[in-house]
């Protein structure tokens, strides 16, 4: 790791001022992507703004029909939250499947969405659920937030403060993990609320997380795994292929994980 300057604000206002003044600085949340990237010298920010001291960025609340999750809320906190387990159990399961227990004690929902790793679990879940990412400047629908691999709609100096997740959907996320890294080779999130059905896919798309429209149309007619029989799988041309799995195999896995997610979302 190259040397850097370090700031640890205790309020969001301080953090915002520091971010505005240090255009090249990186925000540090749980650090479980940023610090390894810095160790490999793939990133060498001149300064880090550590958000771990900003208490107002943590916590989970149910406001009306929405879960409001602070950006610095850890995966373990989401997985263990009675509020989340009651209102949206599939989201607690998703958070409880990220990394391992120690990683879940540090990694945060805000850090995960800001990084938009193409294999991360939260982007698929939040896209399927129609969540809103709230920043120090605006509210961004998940459908506009995740733009491409490791890319988001965030602008310089903009800090994610909380994620608003609508409840009331039948929701589940299923992933096929790489046996070594445990990252999703393919992960599929399915949400059904009234007539709206959303199917979001992570780990596979050449441009990162995406929605699978054909599956959504089929599941909107009848919400059962059988509805996906005969539905054209996503074209491998738009998918990633690497040493772990070819694009064709990933395409196949999307169908399998989607069926499993529909079953799980139906409580079966």
């Amino acid at each position: 790791m190259y040397a850097f300057d370090y700031h640890r604000p205790t309020t969001l206002k301080q953090a915002g001022n520091l971010a505005a003044k240090n255009a090249e600085a990186k925000l540090l949340a749980g650090g479980h992507t940023l610090l390894p990237t810095m160790k490999q010298r793939l990133a060498s920010p001149p300064a880090l703004i550590d958000l771990s001291g900003v208490a107002e960025l943590s916590g989970i609340a149910l406001k009306g029909r929405n879960l409001v999750i602070g950006a610095m809320t850890t995966h373990a906190e989401v997985a263990g939250s009675d509020l989340v387990k009651a209102a949206l159990p599939g989201l607690a399961v998703l958070a409880g499947g990220i990394g391992d227990p120690h990683v879940r004690h540090r990694g945060t929902i805000g850090g995960s969405v800001a990084n938009n790793d193409p294999s991360a679990d939260y982007p698929a879940g939040l896209l399927a659920l129609g969540a809103t990412i709230v920043t120090t400047k605006r509210r961004i629908p998940a459908s506009e937030f995740f733009t491409s691999l490791f890319s988001t709609a965030l602008e310089e100096g903009e800090i994610i403060t909380r994620i608003i997740v609508p409840t009331g959907a039948k929701f589940a996320y299923q992933k096929f993990r790489n046996p070594a890294s445990r990252y999703a080779m393919v992960g599929v999130a399915v949400a059904k609320k009234g007539a709206r059905v959303a199917v979001a896919v992570t780990g596979a798309g050449a441009d990162g997380v995406f929605r699978w429209a054909e599956a959504e149309a089929a599941l909107a007619r009848r919400f059962t795994p059988k509805s996906l029989d005969g539905v054209a799988l996503p074209d491998p041309k738009g998918l990633n292929g690497d040493i772990h799995a070819s694009a064709e195999y990933r395409s196949h896995l999307i169908g399998v994980m989607a069926r499993r997610a529909v079953l799980a979302a139906s409580g079966k």
Binding site: Y6, R8, L28, G31, H32, L35, P36, L48, D50, S52, G53, A76, P101, H102, V103, H105, R106
Partner: peptide, 15 residues
């Protein structure tokens, strides 16, 4: 009180 990986945590974050 929580298990974490100390190779991926800055000492300064543990103030």
């Amino acid at each position: 009180g929580k298990a974490i990986k100390s190779c991926t945590t800055l000492a300064l974050s543990c103030e």
